[in-house]
Design a protein around this nucleic acid. Sequence first.
DNA 1: TTCTTAGTTTAGACATAGTCTAAGTTAGGA
DNA 2: TCCTAACTTAGACTATGTCTAAACTAAGAA
Lengths: 138, 138
Amino acid sequence: MSDLVTRLRRHNWRITPQRRVIAETLEGSHVHFTAEEILERACERMPELSRATVYNTLNEMVALGEILELTLEGRSKRYDPNADHEHHHLICEGCGLMKDVHTVADPADWLPGDERHGFTVTRSSVTYRGLCPDCQGA
Amino acid sequence: MSDLVTRLRRHNWRITPQRRVIAETLEGSHVHFTAEEILERACERMPELSRATVYNTLNEMVALGEILELTLEGRSKRYDPNADHEHHHLICEGCGLMKDVHTVADPADWLPGDERHGFTVTRSSVTYRGLCPDCQGA
DNA sequence: TTCTTAGTTTAGACATAGTCTAAGTTAGGA
DNA sequence: TCCTAACTTAGACTATGTCTAAACTAAGAA
């Protein structure tokens, strides 16, 4: 049983076969997939699964707070099943490898009041870029 | 004369009327526009300007390193004429408004060595999200 | 000045990512 | 069982961005 499915069930969310396949596809890899990639992989197990169901399901999981939607480089959003605790991303500019990382302080503490322009700030995320060990050698 | 135009001229880049209007539109505001917004505003001064020219010109300016392409929330990229000095972004989740902000510390200092996974970190950027004054009221 | 040529611009077709709609299907309670 | 609300589906639609082929423009050569 997928851990994500367990978490989703707690929201009194009906776990249909389609949703289960999508959740398990999301959790089955350490890479963050795009919606199209999830559709493609989930269709290997359930060929009649529709594009709309994948998009709807991903959006609902994001709304429930159980997965994260990442808008990074490129045109498509990616989905991260580790929505549990706050984390940030470290991206290799050589090969595109992406890792989750944790900071020692809350980034919101470093934005002074006069830099907030009247906004109420609710979330903050840091993206670190550099070269991974493999790409430093190359 | 726009400062961005000056910088572009240094690349031996032909400054056509179209490119001048696009560059001045980019610099004329403190917020970061999408390509469509730039097209719309530039068309107020040059109605025959085409969509393709705006997209081509923006992509070329990015390739020259004179503006930044931001892939953040939503479906469209935004363009930042301040490619020079380090700054971060504050985004309204209501209307998509984006502003430049400055933090009181370097985000790289918040990432402990054991969270770097052997990467050499060269750049870091923080994205703050919340509601702008207008969207708080609505 | 006129010619040549490379660079630029244009309209609109095309591609891709994502959303919406209307109709059909399914699950769970009365 | 039937009823109803939730879910799924195919495909139309929208939004964002790219490509193409033809026309235009500017700068140097003759």
